[in-house]
Design a protein around this nucleic acid. Structure first.
Lengths: 346, 346
DNA sequence: TTGAAAGCGCTAACAA
DNA sequence: TTGTTAGCGCTTTCAA
């Protein structure tokens, strides 16, 4: 099927050979392979057969050279956000992105960029139209000018997670506000009267949105917002533990807490246990993420599910759609629904 | 610096233009750019200046077309190992790999492959010399034939973590055996007499190696090996919790436990707490990973540090070295030292 | 609908 | 040491 060479390299069949075998010109063979409509059915069949017989695979380099498209998409991870690597969230999103890229025969190039602080030279020089057709940015943080620079270089961008400044960007996000609202409404519906929250970092959109959802649920129920019932964590277990202790100190009368991430919720559970508070009798806890840990914690955690894999898929497809569009379609945004996963009796 | 076109695409300067500006032939310009030694210093300078003035960047597609090298390296993650995504281990390794690739102007292509079970067609057809020059495989599991197939396709491979069957492979690993040995020796030196272990999955090399280290330390101290003191977990917190409960049931007299991963160690701590055993007075616990959680757990966990970022760097450099070598250097293997991080009084 | 031919930008072989 | 030239494999006009 493929000839081998002395150096172990494999010599692949070329379009030329396919054309010859099919008894057509190179141009025609090319048209068939690229799905051009103006090809006679029988010609198409002949070429297809030749392709199959020869095990032909187009040479991407040659193709790129003339089309000026690389077929590659960058997945940009900002170094400070590397924490994402240690969250199930990330794995799911990447799986979603990856499956789309596979289906569409695109390659996914992983680019870790250093924080603005530690950048010496032009950041991520690799991120240019010369190397990738577009870029997917995950979970941006406020004040980073990388997206702007990439856009200036002519790269099409799509954000996974709503970007801090939503000025004509394309993004896919989950409904953080709605998820948080549902979580808090659930607690209120269970006759909890003093519902606290452990919010995420205020410089992250997800953190802000989930806090907003908390407020909205209180408003809807006519419950006044009380800053003493709000503590902030950094999405880690330790942060959740600290925040819970702080809440217990200020407001030992609380009987429920909505925690903006599962790791923080686990930390909160620990703090509550250490304080001798029973769960959920004395304090009900609801998390956010629907991470695997939430299902097996003691007690199992009610939490908000977010469709992470779908988020990845949608973002990837949105980017490919923008690339396919002649002048780069106008920015779009999609919000995916979240849902409450009720466990135990909290 | 670069001309823009109507479609927003950037038209980059070509080697031709660089040569013209420098007043040399295209070939000479090419030599300078590729660092050929046979170029007169002044010629070199002239070309370099032209490159700088024009902001010239070589066209990778054109280059690949003639050199038949892509400049890309695949990072292959097997789907079942996706758990790696949720471990700090992974983030560190990827950071190491990524930094090397940046330095050497290589792109890192992320490839998630599905488990052997769910593969429909030829697995990861993308993984061929046509697309990538080589591949880095992380944490392989027993019985997967993907590495073999990739090698048959003519791809150079390097493993991060010792591969299950070490028949002439190239790999970089950390000293799991030595780390485990040190951990157990530490417990024995602290006059612990009944040291149990929670081992990792037996189908993973790291799991086996850490158990071996445990045995070696016992042997060295003349302590008999007792299967009742061995429980197995799956590297997750839940697994550690279960294993600890099992150990306590069979051998409530144990006074120390070496746990083969930090997440499992945290689960073990929880089980011990729930059983009313004080830590470290009643039972001393040592983990493995030196994950961030270990430092902030209650009590802080003594654990084994593994140089994850270095592992990534070494693996990446080994692969590039193999690629640079004419006939693909003979397989090499490197074991990086681990070290015990003693915390608290365990 | 099809074939022929002109490059895409670069490296490497060959001459000079 | 340098310039010239022949492709690498493909897409895409341009004619037919």
């Amino acid at each position: 099927m493929t000839g081998s060479r002395a150096d172990g390299t494999t010599k692949r069949p070329t379009l030329e050979q396919v054309a010859a075998l099919a008894g057509v010109g190179r141009g025609t063979a090319s048209r068939v392979i690229n799905g051009s409509p103006s090809v006679a059915p029988q010609t198409r069949d002949a070429v297809m057969k030749a392709v199959a017989d020869l095990g032909y695979v187009p040479n991407q380099a040659a193709r790129s050279l003339v089309t000026r498209r690389t077929g590659a998409i960058a997945l940009v991870i900002s170094e400070p956000e590397e924490r994402l690597f240690s969250e199930p969230f990330f794995a799911g999103v990447v799986r979603g992105i990856s499956s789309v890229m596979d289906e569409r025969d695109r390659q996914l190039v992983l680019v870790l960029v250093h924080g603005a602080a530690e950048r010496r030279d032009e950041p991520a020089a690799y991120l240019s139209p010369q190397h990738v057709d577009g870029a997917l940015l995950l979970s941006q943080h406020e004040g980073d000018d990388l997206p702007q620079r990439l856009r200036e270089r002519g790269l099409r961008l799509v954000f996974g997670g709503r970007p801090p400044s939503d000025d004509g960007q394309s993004w896919v996000d989950v409904d953080n506000v709605g998820g948080a609202r549902a979580a808090v409404a659930h607690l209120l519906a269970r006759r909890r009267t003093t519902v606290a929250t452990i919010a995420g970092p205020p410089d992250m959109q997800a953190g802000r949105d989930r806090l907003l959802g908390y407020r909205e649920a209180l408003d809807a129920a006519g419950v006044p917002f009380d800053t003493d019932l709000v503590a902030t964590g950094d999405f880690t277990e330790l942060g959740g533990w600290r925040a819970m202790r702080q809440l217990l100190e200020h407001r030992p009368d609380l009987d429920a807490v909505f925690v903006a991430s599962d790791p923080m919720a686990l930390g909160a559970l620990r703090a509550l246990r250490e304080a001798g508070r029973s769960i959920p009798d004395s304090v009900a806890v609801v998390g956010f993420d629907d991470s695997p840990m939430a299902a097996v914690s003691d007690p199992p955690l009610t939490t908000v599910n977010q469709p992470v894999e779908l988020l990845g898929r949608e973002a990837a497809e949105m980017l490919l759609a923008r690339l396919a569009d002649p002048e780069g379609a106008s920015p779009r945004s999609v919000v995916l629904p979240t849902s409450l996963v009720v466990r135990g009796s909290s």
